[in-house]
Nucleic acid binder design. Structure first.
Lengths: 142, 142
DNA sequence: GAGTAAATTAGACAAAGTCTAGAAATTCAC
DNA sequence: GTGAATTTCTAGACTTTGTCTAATTTACTC
């Protein structure tokens, strides 16, 4: 169930190739950051992480790369915050808690949420995916 | 189940008052447009609809009003498009199809989607709502 | 109707993301 | 290797959605 987490550059490059992505220096850099562990990050965060020490990737490349990775199934886009897109490095099927107070996004573990079954889709369409988001908020301490 | 659809100004004003919203001219104008039928609209669309003939509402007021209506439960925010927020004038509990090709948002009728039950929430939080979005795409005609 | 609070407004501003045109890598043929 | 073609990367201009500010207008209370 859980996605394999490569730890070294060689594994990362192999994973990119398997997904049909040419492993350029910038892409490997970003992939290393993202695939190190399951996390939810915005483009801005990736840009900051990648360039923390020295400048290695441009803004345009971060956006291009995240979009490319998502289209190849290496990342999952999560749309819950009206101001920015989150990218989830856990691509296995799962759903999310979204804390509307803190803006924090969390995976819902395991199979604890299941849809009975899909409703009939509009004619001429097919399902691409199902997102379940449980919006939560801080319980006001009485 | 279905939300009552007021047809005249008096009903609209009454509905705003019941929700604790002072019925100003601009708010009634926007409410009339939105509550006429179940629909999914963006702020930009509301602005265009309201000012189609003569200028009656400013951009800032449209944003303020939609936010206010949503906070009072008169509208439901739907976050599926990374570029803009949709407001749904159907506030009864239901879920959505989102056509990623056309950007179209559709209600899923009735109780055809049900969650078994909610997973355990993170400590100190409570559920605010559950969004289920089935992303669909055009079936490529073979 | 005067005073106060709430609502509206134009337009400046902010932030996420896209686009463009050129520079740098990479690939391939020879 | 050398040069041509292709892909990728880049800085920075640009677009779009949405927010903020400061001033004006409206509405409500006495």
């Amino acid at each position: 169930m859980s996605t394999v987490l490569p730890t070294n550059r060689v594994d990362t490059i192999e994973r990119l190739k398997s997904a049909g992505v040419t492993p350029t220096q910038q892409r490997v850099e970003i992939a290393q950051l993202l695939f190190a562990r399951h996390q939810h990050v915005s483009a801005e965060q990736v840009l900051a992480m990648a360039n923390a020490h020295s400048s290695v990737v441009s803004k345009a490349t971060v956006y291009n790369t995240l979009g490319l990775f998502a289209s190849k199934g290496l990342l999952r886009e999560v749309i819950v915050d009206p101001t920015k897109v989150f990218y989830d490095s856990n691509t296995s099927e799962h759903h999310h808690f979204y804390n509307v107070d803190s803006g924090e996004l969390m995976d819902i573990q395991g199979e604890s949420v299941q849809l009975a079954d899909l409703p009939e889709l509009p004619a001429g369409t097919q399902a691409e995916g199902v997102d379940v988001i449980i919006r939560i908020k801080q319980t006001p301490n009485s």
